[in-house]
């Protein structure tokens, strides 16, 4: 926040504020009126004027009506963008795709297809906006495993064929995925704080994927350090939220699952507990079923389940899907 001099205030007030020697002008807002009076020695009326002036000066988005958001007549940051998943059935369940608001979590047991789903998103993000993409690359932060490059290449090969209508210009899909391996908390936090903003500010990256958040948090902390873990976790989530709104991009986080101790209801729940759940905007869950089907008459593949657990704009729903050579696809009997 900038200095007091830019505010249109009586020189008397400005002098008093300077005397108080605050590092940040935020203090004016965090202090109560009587405290401000004490700290500056100003009168009650002056303090109120000061506080209002500072409040008005805080850089923030202007208030808008819901109608202008609906009509798209608002600043870019408030406009919702959606990233297609590359599959009609999954997009239908998501009402168009992954939203550019907050954190979208993809949870699931191992081998349920979380990474496959994310790889596909890193490709669809590069599609032009008219085709449901974001017209930009993806930043892929790996914490768990080495980036599955071979699999990515395989998906890139068949991806242009899946896109309808066909792309007018060929896209070099492999060139726009930025991969970062981190192996500890410090690395991850630095990556989010320093490296990602650089990539994002150039506008080349329009999607951030963290695969996975669970790995680091589940191994680095012991039972006794839960409070510390919760603190770290919510501050990480806050940083991701900040990236999401600052650049209006979707942030996708992969999470593991854990067995619920309660005997009622679902057995597997997303890991990292309530602290993390409170920060998640949309939660998707992937799982395996016992069914399997033949695709194209030759390979047999297992049917998996894609589930929306919660999202501010979506009802709970389930879609079966499969993973084949080309990637992730919703599956229904008609095919």
């Amino acid at each position: 926040m900038c200095s007091i001099d830019v505010l249109d205030l009586h020189p008397r007030i400005i002098a008093a504020v300077k005397k108080a020697r605050w590092k940040k002008l935020d203090n004016v807002l965090t202090l109560s009126l009587p405290d401000l009076e004490r700290a500056t020695g100003l009168s009650q009326g002056d303090v109120l004027i000061l506080k209002t002036a500072v409040a008005e000066h805080v850089p923030k988005l202007p208030g808008v009506t819901a109608l202008s958001i609906w009509r798209g007549e608002v600043p870019g940051e408030l406009q919702l963008r959606k990233l297609t998943t590359g599959c009609r059935l999954l997009d239908h369940a998501l009402r168009g795709g992954i939203i550019s608001r907050g954190i979208t979590e993809v949870a699931g047991e191992s081998a349920s297809g979380k990474t496959q789903f994310c790889l596909q998103l890193s490709l669809t993000a590069q599609l032009p906006v008219s085709q449901g993409g974001l017209h930009g690359g993806a930043a892929y932060v790996c914490t768990e495993d080495v980036f599955p490059n071979k699999r990515l290449q395989q998906m890139i090969q068949s991806f242009p064929k899946r896109v309808t209508p066909p792309l007018k210009q060929p896209v070099r899909f492999g060139d726009n995925i930025f991969i970062e391996h981190v192996s500890d908390m410090e690395g991850l936090s630095e990556c989010i704080r320093v490296k990602l903003p650089i990539l994002l500010s150039k506008g080349r990256v329009q999607l951030v994927i963290v695969d996975s958040v669970a790995a680091l948090f589940r191994c680095e902390y012991e039972m006794g350090e839960m409070v510390q873990r919760a603190k770290r976790l919510s501050s990480l989530a806050a940083q991701l939220h900040q990236l999401s709104y600052q650049y209006n991009i979707p942030v996708v986080c992969v999470n593991q699952v854990t067995a619920s101790m309660k005997n009622e209801g679902r057995k597997l729940i997303p890991a990292l507990g309530l602290t993390w759940s409170n920060q998640v905007t949309s939660r998707l869950m992937l799982s395996r079923t016992n069914q399997s089907v033949r695709v194209d008459g030759h390979t047999e593949t297992i049917v998996r389940q894609f589930e929306v657990l919660f999202a501010p704009h979506l009802p709970r729903s389930q879609v079966p899907y499969i993973i084949d050579q080309e990637g992730v696809k919703g599956w229904s009997e008609q095919f």
């Binding site: 506080k51 209002t52 409040a55 208030g63 202008s68």
Partner: peptide
């Protein structure tokens, strides 16, 4: 209905505080 819902987005607590402070005027 939409035109009569006034939407404010706050990205941190300072923005929230300032919005709350300016509400009476609004």
């Amino acid at each position: 209905v939409l035109s009569r819902i006034h939407y404010f987005r706050c990205h941190d607590y300072v923005e929230l505080l300032s919005n709350v402070h300016l509400l009476p005027k609004f």
